[in-house]
Design a protein around this nucleic acid. Structure first.
Length: 455
RNA sequence: GGCGGCGUGGCCGAGUGGUUUAGGCAAGGGCCUGCAAAGCCCUGUACAGCGGUUCAAUUCCGCUCGCCGCCUCCA
């Protein structure tokens, strides 16, 4: 059974799907106003890994991840570039999905947009006002935090201590400085919606409650996101749902940050790296492996050199898999070696212990290679285990169906002939030519094997 | 100020009261190979410092030093 750390309780708890066999999962998505950064990459990979694993275990997953397309930052960018807000959000949303595709991240089942949920948000806010959990004051509608008895559950702080530490942001309209805006009145703005409260825009904590409940119900299994969303965003989402008596999310799952030189990555510190740059710098799977090598709740150091290391490690898995696929057994139905698969499940069930799973993967690669070297028949079961684990983690070696160019084939044939004639000088020279073209020859008993390694 | 976390071998990164103390990358040695590549084998005696508890601590407790995060938009 899958167990996950629940931020609400601080405990590792069993995932018990509300609807047997189906896991409902909501993961807070991006605000599309800029190029995705490597921090986005981590959360997207973590939850993709979780999803893939659940599916690997035979569960079906309804995965919802939103696109925030109405936000002050989008507006600001549109204004400074003299463009329409929708044009800006469209541009970065397209880039978002394109980047995720390159990371081999499965597309969520549903990808709701905030702009499509304005009227539902308004009626939700109406319910909150009716329930006396929200109030209309000067410049907007605010949620009254003190109406939720366990406010601070996710922050792991009491209302008093939160209030004590809260920076004073002198908004006299709020009854408490912790109260947050559900609807901001912006009567003069073009980018606004009319409502019974007045013309305005939604606050950013409401869309996720409304969209998650709309698509997954008033209670669902997992709510996830980056650790910095825990408070206030998730706290506030939860507060709204609780104020209406909804059970809301059962398990709150949060991933750790990406750090650069031990410091959380952020634009203001100029340690910002874009995701497309990072993914493009190496094998697109390298970041996934890097993420897998650390526990999802730990901070993770990420830089181009580490990505390159991970890419080299990937090579080990790839060549093992190539070796396995080349065996006759691989064509048939070979089950993964049972003790390995059991160990894999044991690790992953334990709060997604991917470091242990990856460790096991590499150990299995070594065992498979050894077994093949000595013609041990256990090799195919081990190879099948490597293949199964690799694909459950989303690290599968996309079989590069790279057609062999005629020129390459020609060089290869010449090299084989030279080698057969023991003209090693010519043979090595030809091999070098091929390497420059991105092709590597591995000599074996039955002659050389041509392999594309890219450049 | 409140809350939480961290300091592991060249780097990344798991983990554990004692026993064979992950894994990857890098490094060194070896086997194999015409040479390579791939693969296999071997090597590194790491746990911030100081006390304490214990038969035994890197692992538990305390303190010190250093560092990080949340409390504000943020994955």
């Amino acid at each position: 059974m899958v167990h996950l750390h629940n931020s609400a309780t601080g405990q590792i708890e069993e995932l018990k799907p509300i609807e047997a066999g189906t896991v409902s999962m909501y993961v807070c998505g991006p605000t599309v106003y800029d190029v995705p950064h490597i921090g986005h990459g981590r959360f997207v990979l973590v939850f993709d890994i979780l999803r893939r694993y659940l599916e690997h275990r035979g569960l079906s997953v309804v995965h919802v991840s939103n696109i925030t397309d109405v936000d002050d930052k989008i507006l600001a960018r549109a204004a400074s570039e003299g463009r329409e807000p929708l044009e800006v959000s469209r541009q970065f949303e397209d880039l978002w999905w394109e980047t995720l595709r390159s990371l081999n991240v499965l597309r969520p089942t549903h990808t709701p947009h905030a702009t499509a949920y304005i009227s539902k948000m308004l009626s939700f806010i109406g319910e909150l006002v009716e329930a006396d959990a929200a109030y209309l004051a000067g410049d907007g509608v605010y949620f009254e935090v003190s109406k939720v008895s366990d406010y601070g559950l996710l922050a792991h702080q009491s209302l008093d201590s939160l209030r004590a530490g809260a920076r004073v942001e002198a908004n006299p309209n709020k009854r408490s400085q912790l109260d947050f805006a559900l609807w901001k009145l912006t009567p003069d703005d073009r980018w606004a919606w009319d409502s019974s409260f007045g013309r305005g825009r939604p606050g950013w904590h409401t869309e996720c409650v409304v969209m998650s409940e709309d698509l997954l119900g008033k209670t669902f299994d997992i709510h996830g996101g980056g650790a910095d969303l825990m408070f206030p965003h998730h706290e506030n989402e939860r507060a709204q749902a609780r104020a209406l008596g909804h059970r809301f999310a059962h398990l709150w799952v949060h991933n750790g940050f990406v750090a650069v030189n031990d410091v959380k990555m952020s634009k203001s510190l100029h340690n910002y790296v874009t995701l497309p740059d990072l993914v493009g710098s190496s094998d697109p799977r390298a970041y996934r492996l890097l993420v897998l090598q650390a526990h999802y709740r730990s901070p993770l150091e990420v830089n181009v050199a580490l990505i390159a290391d991970a890419a080299r490690a990937l090579g080990r898995i790839d060549s093992a898999l190539e070796r396995y696929w080349a065996t006759p057994a691989a064509g048939g139905l070979v089950l993964g070696e049972p003790t390995v698969m059991e160990a894999f499940h044991g690790a992953m069930d334990d709060d997604l212990d991917t470091p242990a799973a990856v460790s096991l993967l590499f150990q299995t690669v070594t065992r498979m290679n050894s077994a093949m070297d000595r013609n041990d028949e256990v090799a195919s079961a081990l190879g099948a285990a490597v293949a199964a684990i690799t694909s459950a983690l989303g690290l599968q070696n996309e079989k590069r169906d790279v057609a062999i160019p005629a020129a390459v084939a020609d060089l290869f044939r010449k090299r084989e002939a030279a080698r057969a004639g023991r003209d090693f000088a010519l043979s090595d020279a030809l091999r070098k030519n091929l390497e420059e073209l991105g092709w590597i020859i591995e000599d074996g008993r039955e002659g050389g094997v041509l392999r594309y390694r890219g450049r």
